[in-house]
């Protein structure tokens, strides 16, 4: 039995910076900045990314992205969590706690590429995946073993090759997410409304995303919000 867990917990609680009382900035103000809209939008579609990945996808410099992320955290639109020693970010209220690590994994480059190939071309062999992804056999093999262990894909041997197929894990999670999507949409609209100004308006809605119209004058800017992040990876 490892000892010292009590002292470690005590230290963790003492050392932690207690944030000043949560700042609920005006919802309209916080998203008046284009960079913040882009970051938040990207995180709703692909939650649980680190700053480097957010910076790459939004084409906003990492330092700038970090500053905007800090403001979004202070306004309680996104939360930070540590996974494997890295700080990752996701929208508050959108991601089930138990799937934070799953989304972090899904956003990793080899996983994202190979999973996309398996979903697009079920039955591909390791060699075919290696050729299409331009990744080494070793990298593909390592990633595929990992994805099988996480039940994201299944492997079937046809005698000479091992072929990979998508499992129902993500689609099941996506289907079961409907109520949460609804709740998150209500939560976000309420939060934006509480910020004052004009009420945000949904101008377009699908099962996986909504487009909101925001701004002091209606229609000043729009923001795309993912409401079912599992669908991004299907």
């Amino acid at each position: 039995m490892s000892r010292g867990v009590g002292k470690a917990l005590e230290s963790a609680l003492k050392e932690k910076d207690i944030p000043e009382k949560t700042v609920h900035r005006k919802g309209i103000d916080i998203f008046s900045n284009r960079c913040r809209r882009a970051i938040f939008s990207e995180l709703t579609l692909s939650p649980c990314m680190n700053i480097a990945e957010i910076s790459r996808r939004t084409e906003i410099k990492a330092n700038t992205a970090g500053w905007h992320i800090e403001r979004l955290i202070k306004s309680s639109y996104i939360v930070e969590r540590r996974v494997g020693g890295r700080r990752i970010y996701f929208p508050e209220g959108l991601v089930p706690s138990e799937d934070v690590t799953l989304f972090y994994t899904l956003n990793q480059f080899p996983v994202r590429v190979l999973l996309s190939l398996v979903f697009g071309n079920p039955g591909n062999s390791q060699s075919e995946l290696s050729e299409k992804s331009k990744m080494s056999h070793q990298s593909v093999s390592k990633t595929m073993i990992y994805l099988v262990s996480k039940e994201l894909i299944s492997s079937v041997s046809d005698g000479s090759h091992i072929r990979y197929y998508p499992t129902k894990l993500l689609s099941d999670k996506s289907e079961n997410f409907y109520n949460r999507s609804k709740r998150y949409t209500e939560f976000l609209l309420k939060k934006l409304k509480e910020g004052g100004g004009r009420e945000p308006k949904i101008v377009k809605k699908s099962v996986e995303r909504i487009i909101l119209e925001l701004g002091p004058k209606r229609g000043e800017y729009t923001m795309e919000i993912g409401i079912n992040p599992y669908m991004t990876f299907l």
């Binding site: 039995m1 490892s2 000892r3 867990v5 009590g6 470690a8 917990l9 963790a12 609680l13 932690k16 207690i18 944030p19 939360v79 930070e80 969590r81 540590r82 996974v83 494997g84 020693g85 934070v100």
Partner: peptide
């Protein structure tokens, strides 16, 4: 304090102390 700890620090804490049987 404790709720902030839960939100931000608990996963990494648990990763370090999983199986401690306290």
């Amino acid at each position: 304090e404790f709720s902030t700890f839960i939100k931000k620090e608990l996963p990494s804490f648990v990763a370090d102390w999983k199986g401690a049987n306290a």
